[in-house]
């Protein structure tokens, strides 16, 4: 632990790792939405797994160890499995290539362009910290847990109820016929 800590706190190596993970994230993200070789949803799902794993690498670089673990556990372990499962269940044929809708293309690029320009403008005008502060939160998981069960008790409980509701909802929705 100590060694990893030292390793990622160090300057050049961390920077290098950042660029690697960032590039991996973006590349895999791109392949999720647009894969020139395959239009099979399973491929997309697999690249989504890769995106998530590289993102948890970024989380590690940001000292969010617990979240990195949760990310892999929940997303790669549960969510993606669910996706794959549904794809199998539905027995989707490979999506046949349809006529490209120019309006759709135009609309997508336009909206993304607008959002992107707004982000760029904000990012460039904001004065952001370049230097991360020294490690104040050693034993981060402990601090996070403490925060979660003291300051954020009520949201925590509400989220648990939400999960229950989602569970019941899913069971109801999956029944063959609703009475």
């Amino acid at each position: 632990m100590e060694q990893i800590n030292n390793l990622i706190s160090g300057g050049a190596v961390t920077d290098l790792l950042f660029y690697v993970f960032a590039a991996l994230t973006l590349l895999c993200g791109l392949l999720v939405i647009a894969n020139p070789f395959s239009r099979n949803p399973v491929t997309s799902a697999m690249f989504l797994v890769l995106t998530i794993i590289s993102m948890s690498g970024l989380f590690l670089l940001l000292h969010a160890f617990f979240l990195a673990a949760v990310q892999i556990l929940v997303y790669a372990g549960a969510v993606i499995v669910l996706f794959i499962f549904v794809i199998m269940l539905l027995d989707l044929k490979e999506e046949q290539r349809r006529r490209i809708r120019f309006f759709g293309l135009f609309a997508g690029l336009l909206s993304v362009g607008i959002v992107f320009s707004i982000f760029i403008k904000c990012l460039s005008s904001a004065k952001l910290a370049t230097e991360a502060p020294a490690n104040a939160h050693d034993g981060e998981t402990y601090a996070l847990g403490k925060l979660l069960f003291t300051n954020y008790t009520l949201p925590f409980e509400i989220v648990s109820v939400l999960l229950l509701v989602a569970m019941i909802g899913v069971i109801l929705l999956s029944k063959k016929k609703l009475e």
């Binding site: 993200g29 999720v32 647009a34 996706f83 549904v86 759709g104 997508g108 690029l109 993304v112 959002v115």
Partner: peptide, 14 residues
């Protein structure tokens, strides 16, 4: 933005 593009352009619900 990649996600947004996917939402608007792709036609498979999954």
């Amino acid at each position: 933005c990649l996600g947004l593009l996917g939402v608007i352009l792709r036609r498979n619900l999954l």
